[in-house]
């Protein structure tokens, strides 16, 4: 297995993963999306809401605000020592008290734990007009993306096969495929189309170039062919800011490791049991 990063920022990563199966690539993607816990507002106690929005819409908007998560501080309620009853290790509280007229932003939420503040301060929550008031208390807990997308640490997270583009000798350099490519990954040179190496990874595998080539009257087989390299993937992971992308990747891989380990253990138990019976 080989991994090469072409970009690794706080909120975005792009890398090529080589030497794994479709199944592994997909479970890695799914683990990043739905098995890495983050904090999100789950319970809201509304003391006063005279705004134009209903309480439940307001609560839904609060839930979608990404919150900086420190996984060493917080635990999933199901795995907490308190048994999910609620303790400082499995939840944190925010208070909000605003009077109109004004716009209420995510930055107006006052966190009990300053380390667990909203990622962005300027997310509009709602607009208050004259004589309107909003007083509430919100509780954020760790959760997983498979339960609700507000706990998903990634936004766009996906992969595609690595493109392999071959241009054979029949190419007459007509330039139709060059004009057709929506990602501009082709260029004309020396009477023949060629691939621009630094733009190759942008290929959408849409095969518009193949169709354009056939329209040029070359016959039933196009001179340019787009293939996918099996077992080589281009991953694109974007985080919502609640966790750095590096940590999302690490946590997802740890999850995969942990789940395969527990599968092996249960297999061992079963296999151990049958082999004992056989020996008896």
């Amino acid at each position: 297995m080989d991994i090469v990063f072409s970009r690794l920022g706080d909120n975005e990563a792009r890398f090529v993963l080589e030497g794994v199966s479709d199944g592994f690539a997909n479970s890695f993607r799914r683990a990043m999306m739905s098995e890495v816990p983050t904090l999100a507002i789950e319970d809201v106690r509304i003391y006063d809401n005279t705004s134009v929005l209903f309480d439940e819409i307001l609560a839904s908007r609060l839930g979608l605000i990404p919150i900086r998560t420190d996984l060493s501080t917080y635990r999933l309620p199901s795995r907490c020592e308190c048994g999910g009853a609620g303790c400082p290790r499995c939840y944190t509280v925010y208070t909000l008290s605003v009077e109109g007229p004004c716009m209420v932003y995510s930055g107006d939420l006052v966190p009990r734990d300053p380390a667990a503040s909203p990622v962005h301060d300027r997310i509009p929550i709602l607009r208050l007009f004259e004589n309107q008031k909003l007083v509430l208390e919100a509780r954020a807990v760790l959760g997983k993306g498979k339960e609700h997308s507000k706990w998903q640490p990634t936004i766009a997270c996906g992969y595609k096969h690595y493109p392999v583009i071959t241009i054979d000798d029949r190419c007459d350099g007509c330039g139709m495929c060059v004009d057709e490519c929506p990602r501009g990954r082709l260029a004309n040179g020396k009477g023949k189309a060629r691939v621009i190496p630094e733009r190759l990874e942008l290929c959408l595998l849409c095969r518009l170039c193949e169709k354009a080539c056939k329209r040029g009257g070359i016959g039933s087989e196009p001179a340019i062919r787009v293939d996918e390299e099996r077992s080589r993937y281009i991953f694109n992971v974007e985080g919502d800011g609640s966790l750095p992308v590096r940590e999302i990747i690490k946590e997802a891989l740890l999850h995969l490791k942990e789940s395969t380990r527990s599968l092996l253990e249960s297999l061992d138990e079963i296999a151990g049991g049958t082999s004992d019976e056989e020996s008896e």
Binding site: I65, I123, P124, Q152, I155, E238, D240
Partner: peptide
């Protein structure tokens, strides 16, 4: 009110709304 996130990908789009 502008939705907090994009319905499809989940990006925080409400930040950009006012500008």
């Amino acid at each position: 009110m502008i939705p907090v996130r994009c319905f499809t990908c989940g990006k925080i789009i409400s930040l950009a709304w006012e500008e």
